[in-house]
């Protein structure tokens, strides 16, 4: 396929795929929110002794962060919309499904691998998000439990994952998966045949 045609077809296909991708994301979001909250809480417990973090999923997909050692776990330390963590699914699915000149089976296989990476990334983002709240947003409690280095680590990590990487990761995964589709070298001219000796 001509490279210029590739760009045009990708843009057209992206327009066609973005709505189905968004609908699929909306349908799967309640299930995915439950996975994120349950697995995220388990991961956070790996760094706690005793296990103090309790994450809850409220109506409308709102994440509620509580700790048993602060107010007995009764008051919310922070609340955030979980959809903000994972709406990059729409971009990922749109890009992978819209790639022209590649068989659907190969696109789906590549999408499955990329989805695994994104699953792990969202968990990492959630862990950094919660830890950054603990490290920087709880006043005296934060100052008592987190040193300057830890505050910077969790704060910078959350900022980096939440802004640049959340948006860039779907693109990076797509570019790596379909590099040959838009960056392939020119066809080499056929090697000249040697004249036969008689």
């Amino acid at each position: 396929m001509e490279r210029v045609a590739f760009a045009r077809l990708l843009a057209r296909n992206a327009l066609l795929w973005i709505v189905p991708a968004a609908i699929l994301w909306l349908v799967l979001t309640p299930l995915y929110n439950r996975y994120l909250v349950a697995t995220g809480e388990t991961l956070l417990h790996l760094g706690e002794s005793p296990d103090s973090t309790r994450l809850y999923l409220r109506d409308q997909g709102v994440l509620r962060i509580t700790r048993l050692d602060i107010g007995g776990g009764q008051s919310a330390l922070h609340e955030a919309a979980l959809s903000d963590f994972h709406f990059d699914w729409i971009l990922l699915a749109t890009l992978f499904l819209a790639t022209p000149g590649v068989a659907m089976a190969r696109r789906l296989r590549a999408l499955a691998w990329a989805a695994l990476v994104l699953l792990v990334f969202h968990l990492l983002l959630l862990v950094f998000y919660v830890e950054s709240i603990y490290a920087t947003a709880l006043g005296d409690w934060s100052a008592r439990h987190y040193g300057a280095l830890a505050r910077n680590f969790w704060g910078l990590g959350k900022h980096t994952l939440n802004l640049p990487f959340k948006f860039a990761l779907p693109f990076a995964l797509w570019a790596a998966s379909f590099w040959q589709s838009f960056a392939q070298p020119e066809e080499a001219p056929p090697a000249p045949r040697k004249p036969r000796r008689r």
């Binding site: 210029v4 760009a7 070298p185 066809e187």
Partner: peptide, 11 residues
């Protein structure tokens, strides 16, 4: 990348 970048030379 497809319009303004010349294709790499063949190997």
């Amino acid at each position: 990348a497809t319009r303004f970048v010349p294709r790499p030379a063949p190997a």
